[in-house]
C-alpha cells in the first residue's frame, strides 16, 4: 500500500513538473513571437539537413494520419456495430483457411500500412482467428489493387507485379500460421478504453476512434521521426554499392526498405530506380517495407505485445530473406 502511495506521489510530482515546463515553454514562444525575435532564430532553422528532416517527417505524417484516422473510424464502427458472431461466420477456425482469407481482405479494405493496424487490432479483439489477423496485417498494404497497379506503372512488367504478389502472399500466410498463438491475449496489448455505456452509439464510435488515434498517432510520430532521421542522413548509394553480391543485395535491400519507411503505393517507383539491383532484390525491397518498416514497427509496439512484435519482425525478415534467396536461384 505504501509502495503504491509513493508511486502515486512521484507521478503527481512529475505531472506538476511537466505542466509547469509546458506553461513556461508556451510563454517563452509567445514572448519571442511578440518581440519579433523569430526572424533571428529562424536562420538556425534554415539548415538544409533540418529542412530535409522536417519535410520527410511531415510527408510521412500527412500520408499516414488520414489513413490512421480512417482505420480508427473503421475500428470504432467494428467495435460498436459488428458482433463477434459475424466475424466468426466469415473466418473459419482452421489456421490455414483463416490466414488465406486474411491475406485477401486488402481487396475489400485497401487501407494503407498505417490504417490497417487499428483495424487488425479490433478484428482480433472481436474474435477473428489470430492467423487471419496477422496475414491481413502483413498483406493488406501490398495485396490490394492500388499497390499492384502502381507496381505495374513503375516497372511496366507483369513479372514484377506477380513476383511482388506471390512473395507477399506466401510470406503473410506462412508467418500468420507460424506465429499465431491460440489465445488472442498473447497478441493484443491492453490499454485503457473508455467504456461509457450510457453514450449514444455514434458517440461511442468516435470515443473508440479517439483512443486509437491518440495511441497509433503518437507512435506514428515517433516512428516517422526515426525514419526521417535515417532518410536524412543515410546515403542510398551506400546500400546499392554493398549490394552487388546476390545474397548481400537481398539483405541490403531489406535493411534499406526498413529504414526508408516508404508508402507501399510509392516504393515501386523508388525500387525501379535501383538500376543495378536484381529483380528479386527489388521485389524483396517492395515487400519488406510495407510489412516491417521502422515507422510501422514502432506503431506495432503500441498496438501489440512486445513478445509478439519481436516474433513478427524476426519471422517476416527471415522468411523474406529465404524467399529472396530461393527467388534469386530460380531466376531473379
Amino acid at each position: 500500500m505504501k509502495k503504491f502511495e509513493d508511486k502515486r506521489k512521484k507521478e503527481e510530482r512529475l505531472k506538476k513538473f511537466l505542466i509547469t515546463i509546458g506553461v513556461i515553454f508556451t510563454f517563452t514562444l509567445f514572448n519571442l513571437w511578440q518581440s519579433n525575435s523569430f526572424s533571428q532564430i529562424s536562420k538556425i532553422f534554415q539548415n538544409p539537413k533540418l529542412q530535409v528532416f522536417t519535410i520527410i517527417l511531415f510527408a510521412i505524417l500527412i500520408e499516414g494520419f488520414p489513413f490512421i484516422l480512417i482505420g480508427s473510424l473503421i475500428s470504432g464502427i467494428i467495435e460498436v456495430f459488428v458482433s463477434e458472431d459475424k466475424f466468426k461466420q466469415l473466418f473459419p477456425n482452421n489456421k490455414f483457411a483463416s490466414a488465406f482469407i486474411g491475406s485477401f481482405l486488402g481487396f475489400l479494405f485497401p487501407v494503407c500500412s498505417c490504417g490497417e493496424i487499428p483495424v487488425t487490432r479490433r478484428l482480433i479483439k472481436k474474435g477473428i482467428p489470430p492467423s487471419g489477423g496477422i496475414s491481413y496485417l502483413l498483406a493488406t498494404a501490398i495485396i490490394n489493387p492500388i499497390t499492384l497497379f502502381s507496381t505495374y506503372l513503375a516497372f511496366s512488367s507483369f513479372k514484377m507485379v506477380w513476383g511482388r504478389f506471390i512473395i507477399a502472399f506466401i510470406c503473410s500466410i506462412f508467418v500468420g500460421i507460424l506465429i499465431a498463438p491460440s489465445d488472442k491475449k498473447e497478441i493484443l496489448k491492453d490499454y485503457e478504453e473508455d467504456k461509457d455505456e450510457k453514450l449514444p452509439k455514434f458517440q461511442k464510435v468516435f470515443t473508440h476512434s479517439l483512443n486509437d488515434f491518440l495511441i497509433m498517432g503518437k507512435y506514428l510520430i515517433i516512428g516517422g521521426t526515426v525514419a526521417s532521421l535515417f532518410s536524412t542522413f543515410i546515403s542510398r548509394d551506400f546500400f546499392l554499392i554493398i549490394g552487388r553480391n546476390k545474397i548481400i543485395s537481398i539483405l541490403s535491400m531489406q535493411i534499406l526498405s526498413i529504414l526508408l519507411s516508404l508508402c507501399s503505393y510509392a516504393d515501386a517507383f523508388v525500387a525501379s530506380s535501383f538500376t543495378y539491383m536484381s529483380s528479386i532484390s527489388k521485389i524483396i525491397f517492395m515487400v519488406t517495407g510495407p510489412m516491417i518498416s521502422i515507422s510501422l514497427i514502432i506503431v506495432y509496439f503500441a498496438a501489440f505485445k512486445e513478445k509478439f512484435v519481436k516474433k513478427l519482425i524476426i519471422s517476416v525478415f527471415l522468411t523474406l530473406f529465404l524467399l529472396g534467396i530461393i527467388g534469386s536461384f530460380i531466376g531473379g
Binding site: F45, L50, V52, T232
Partner: peptide, 14 residues
C-alpha cells in the same frame, strides 16, 4: 519554426 519550402540540394546528393 523551420517553415520548409522545398527539398534542398542536400537531399539530392544523399
Amino acid at each position: 519554426l523551420v517553415r520548409p519550402t522545398n527539398l534542398p540540394i542536400y537531399a539530392a546528393l544523399k
